[in-house]
Simulated assay, not measured.
Amino acid sequence: MLIAEVSKTYDISADTLRYYERVGLIPTVNRRANGIRDYDESDLSWVEFIKCMRAAGIQVEALIEYVALYQQGDETNEARKEILVEQRAQLVKRMEDMTATLKRLDYKIDNYDRIMRGDIGESKCGAESSD
């Protein structure tokens, strides 16, 4: 599959795909005789994996290390697992922080709904109190 097709299929710019390859986020993509990248199923699996991990906020550096270890073979399984466990813990923490922020926003929105309905006066809650 050519880079334009991969770009369209995965909604990732061609420049981003080239960057991913250049920094080692995806292994080197095979090229046709004329030098044009030709993504195979393995390459597409990497693109999908990296897109998923980046969407979750996984650090680029951790993913580069993970891919480099993967390319070294099965003897790096434990190290790769450690990277994933660490990144998972960071993701769980971010989710907890986001959940707390969401609750805070819900409270503030509900408070404004009460003010606009006249259930409470604005002076009782303060325009931007820390709640």
Rank of each mutant, 00 (worst) to 15 (best):
Y112P: 04
R80L: 00
D97A: 13
V92T: 10
S129N: 09
L17R: 01
T99R: 14
E61M: 07
N30M: 12
R117W: 04
L44A: 02
I12Q: 04
N34F: 02
I50T: 06
Y107S: 11
K51G: 12
E61Y: 03
R114Y: 10
Y39H: 05
I26V: 13
R88A: 11
L84E: 06
R104T: 12
K108D: 05
D74G: 11
V23L: 04
K108E: 06
M98G: 06
D106A: 09
R80D: 02
E5V: 08
M116I: 11
G118C: 00
T28D: 12
L2V: 09
D11R: 13
K8Q: 15
R54L: 10
A55M: 12
A56F: 07
Y10F: 14
Y112K: 05
I12N: 07
I26C: 06
I36A: 14
S13A: 05
R37W: 01
I50H: 00
I64N: 05
G126S: 00
G35M: 03
T76F: 00
Y10N: 05
I36Y: 15
R22A: 10
R114D: 13
E48M: 10
D40S: 09
E48K: 14
G73Q: 01
M95Y: 13
M116K: 10
D97V: 08
A89H: 12
G35R: 06
G73C: 01
I36S: 11
G121D: 12
K124W: 12
E61G: 09
N77W: 15
A127Q: 11
L63D: 01
N30T: 13
N77K: 14
A127E: 14
D119S: 06
A79P: 01
